[in-house]
């Protein structure tokens, strides 16, 4: 397999195999401390390698396409996977949780990525997959974290503050008056990781996309500009996605009769 264009040194199959030996550090530590993670580590690293190699081939094929519907379909599939994964990281379920997550992920990422592509980066044509797909992927990966955090905090917050919420309802509060502090907390907490990562960006962490561009031979100053754009995209999409999923969740877990409907919430057994 040869990359389309590359300014970086190519990594041969043998050297790639050498890199996989690094996983032995994790496996060794797990065995030494009896963490019981050996099997999970092997599955995770195998999945990572297989998924990435597959994606590499798919992207090579995709970047040769100039077929807007096919590219948009792929974008949609990515967003659907992100929406489903966001829910799967949470510990509880309610009817409509997947729908809420999908609506929020697809809505926020489409809006933000669309705006960034059309107004800021302006590739020709607008659906050029080399721009659209990686940008969307980064937005989705971060929005997904925010959404699962926001959903989790909303559900746990309503459960732990159930008595307080119902006290407000019993005194004549509307469902919004009773729940808004829990809703706002969930949104705030879900946005904190994005804000924190912007704080230390470039000082503690050199973002992966920027590193990649620099390895490819891009001027650091140009790579930094892309990184700034992508960070603003990530924070806007995370904010919108979290806002959407938490508000939709609040509506799912309360009723139009201003009742708290935690009976709609079910918990999952702990999974590894």
């Amino acid at each position: 397999m040869t990359p389309i264009t590359s300014g970086a040194l190519t990594i041969s199959d043998g050297r790639l195999a050498l890199a996989t030996l690094l996983i032995l550090v994790n496996v060794g530590l797990s065995a030494l401390l009896r963490l019981g993670l050996g099997r999970t580590l092997l599955i995770a690293s195998t999945r990572m390698v297989v998924q990435l190699l597959l994606v590499g081939s798919v992207l090579e094929w995709l970047f040769r396409q100039d077929n807007a519907p096919a590219i948009l379909l792929l974008a949609l599939v990515m967003a659907v996977i992100a929406g489903i994964s966001a829910v799967q990281r949470t510990r509880r379920r309610f009817a409509g949780i997947y729908r809420n997550s999908l609506v929020s992920v697809i809505g926020s990422s489409a809006l933000v990525t669309g705006l960034a592509i059309v107004a800021i980066i302006q590739p020709e044509p607008w659906f050029t997959p080399q721009y659209l797909i990686p940008l969307l992927g980064m937005v989705l990966g971060n929005t997904l974290n925010g959404i699962s955090l926001g959903l989790d905090r909303l559900m746990e917050g309503l459960l732990s503050r159930r008595e307080q919420v119902e006290a407000w309802l019993a005194l004549g509060g509307s469902r919004w008056e009773a729940c808004n502090s829990v809703v706002r907390d969930a949104i705030r907490i879900a946005m904190i990781p994005t804000i924190n990562s912007m704080m230390v960006m470039g000082l503690v962490s050199l973002p992966g996309m920027m590193t990649g561009q620099i390895l490819e031979g891009a001027a650091p100053a140009a790579a930094v500009r892309y990184q700034i754009v992508i960070l603003f995209m990530i924070s806007a999409a995370t904010a919108l996605g979290v806002f959407g999923v938490v508000l939709l969740g609040y509506r799912s877990l309360t009723s139009q009769d201003h009742q708290l409907r935690l009976d709609r919430l079910s918990s999952l057994r702990e999974r590894p």
Binding site: E163, E166, A167, W168, A170, L171, G172, S174, E177
Partner: peptide
Amino acid sequence: RSRLIYLAQRPVLFPGTVRDNLQAVFQLA
């Protein structure tokens, strides 16, 4: 619910003083 108020067996108190608790409910629409 404002005309038929349910008082739970375990009272829920909001942060602040007793006066804050009594006044807080007047914020409700």
